[in-house]
């Protein structure tokens, strides 16, 4: 695998982020930078990517690994192009999150934690995302999809397929 390198605009953003923290405390920028890295390098953090982040921050690779493995938003394994993160905590459960999860499993023919064979969709269950009043819900990329129904789930899958087809 080639050494990952940020494009100039991302690198500038990384350097700007480091200035938010006192001199010598650049390690503080690790989570914000891991987000940029994950977005930029295929939706997950490979060892090579984490080593690169360590290099940029002038810290040990281990310091990046231990952080990346602690936070649930850091994917340390490859994921599909679209990751459905469905909330399953109490308030969402009351409003039918289990049916939504089951429907996604049946529709995509995968289990929770798996990715479809075409590499398009990954299904994850997550704990409370702070949208309890708009349940059931899931996170898809940057945004929340709320008040989910089977029909809405169908539309979201369709939307993802269309976007993927347009971008290819």
């Amino acid at each position: 695998m080639t050494h990952p390198i940020f494009p100039p605009d991302k690198l500038a953003k990384v350097m700007e982020l480091i200035t938010h923290y006192p001199e010598g405390k650049q390690k503080s920028a690790i989570l914000p930078i891991l987000h940029i890295a994950q977005d930029n390098f295929g939706g997950w953090l490979s060892t090579e990517t984490m080593d690169y982040v360590a290099e940029l921050l002038n810290i040990l690779p281990m310091e990046v690994y231990e952080v990346a493995t602690f936070y649930s938003m850091c994917n340390t394994k490859p994921v599909g192009k679209y990751v459905f993160e469905v909330c399953q905590t109490g308030p969402c459960m009351i409003n039918g999150s289990e049916e939504i999860i089951q429907y996604l499993k049946d529709t995509l023919h995968i289990e929770v934690g798996e990715t479809t064979s075409d590499g398009l969709f990954t299904l994850k269950t997550v704990e409370c995302l702070g949208a309890c009043g708009y349940a059931p819900m899931m996170q898809l990329g940057k945004f929340y999809r709320e008040h989910l129904t089977k029909e809405k789930v169908n539309a979201i899958i369709e939307e993802c397929r269309n976007t993927a087809a347009t971008n290819n």
């Binding site: 938010h20 503080s28 989570l31 914000p32 936070y71 938003m73």
Partner: peptide
């Protein structure tokens, strides 16, 4: 004064 937003990564 400077105000910066720091983004967490999913940990209650």
């Amino acid at each position: 004064l400077e105000i910066y937003v720091h983004r967490g990564a999913g940990a209650y």
